[in-house]
Amino acid sequence: MKTTQPLLTTNISQLKLHNRGKVRDIYEVNNDLLIVTTDRISAFDVVLPNGIPYKGQVLTGLSEYWFHYTADVTENHLITTDIDSIDNTFVRHHKDILQGRSMLVKKVNVIPVECIIRGYLAGSGWKEYQKFQSICGIKLPAGLKESDKLPEPIFTPSTKAHTGHDENIPVSEVINLIGKTLTDELKEKSLKIYSKASEYAKSRGIIICDTKFEWGITNNNKTMLIDEVLTPDSSRFWPLEFYTPGKPQPSYDKQFIRDYLESIHWDKNPPAPALPPDIIQKTSEKYLNAYKTLTGKSLI
């Protein structure tokens, strides 16, 4: 690894910019897309001014790992993470920036539903359970504690509202949006991936509390897993050795940043406050630890 300086943005002027999201810069390459994961981090839907060193490499490396691991459950959009193998001079020219944090992927039509699978009672699910004994309208047994394992994983889809915040929606609304056949397929595949990944992660000492999957559909109607998958940005990862139901859990994900921002009483409106160096360093260590624990390899 050449540098620990976080990469906050990319500007490859020779390539057409397809989209610049909170964390990813996406370029068009031939008929495919190049997803470049920067070290930007967002919390409460606001991008923070500081980057987290190695975050882009962790998200890319973990996504690649899980895409391969779950390939028997579903097809995905990953073509390669090897910059040298991409048939584009401009991409290879920027190898020093792109290698390790980029995925060349198939271009598909994005399905406008986020498939959230919850295996444990945490976050907004715990808040809702306390009021209604349910999550997204799904009734749960009485007497569950915060961080308890659910009787079985549940499918709680959400969609993007116009404000950019995610909104939980009932399955009936998903069916209205995309039809029953596709809804059933996404639910079944999302639950299968979660089940397979959770079992593996637990054997490595990590509980996947919950996670979010995104899906696309090709022009010939083939469903594909897209975006990132089972990363600390799209999931809650808890260390198994410290798991104690009845309270919030320590985590490997960006909940650490959210907790810090809550502690300083930021109003969650832009601009976001700068992060202290120790918070940046600890967050970077959490991401790197998650990668090492799950894959058995060190990034640095």
Rank of each mutant, 00 (worst) to 15 (best):
T4A: 15
T9G: 13
T10A: 07
T10L: 14
Q14H: 12
Q14G: 06
Q14V: 13
L17G: 00
R20P: 04
K22V: 08
V23Q: 03
E28T: 13
V29Q: 05
N30I: 11
N30A: 13
N30T: 14
L34A: 06
D39K: 10
I41T: 04
S42L: 04
F44T: 05
L48N: 01
P49D: 03
G51W: 06
P53S: 12
Q57C: 12
L59M: 07
L62E: 00
A71I: 14
V73N: 11
E75A: 15
D82P: 01
S85Y: 01
R101N: 02
M103V: 03
V105Y: 09
V105I: 12
K107H: 13
E114F: 05
I116Y: 08
I117R: 08
Y120M: 02
E128W: 07
E128C: 01
F132W: 14
S134Q: 07
P141C: 11
G143P: 01
K149G: 01
I154H: 06
N168L: 15
P170Y: 09
G179R: 08
K180S: 12
K187I: 09
S190G: 05
L191H: 07
L191K: 09
K192S: 11
S198T: 08
A201R: 09
I208D: 01
I208V: 05
E214R: 07
K222G: 12
T223W: 07
L225I: 04
D227I: 06
L230Y: 04
F242P: 00
P245E: 10
P245K: 11
P248E: 10
L261K: 08
S263P: 02
I264W: 06
H265K: 13
P271D: 04
P271M: 09
A272P: 02
P276A: 11
I280M: 06
Q281Y: 14
Q281T: 15
S284K: 08
Y287K: 09
N289S: 13
A290Q: 09
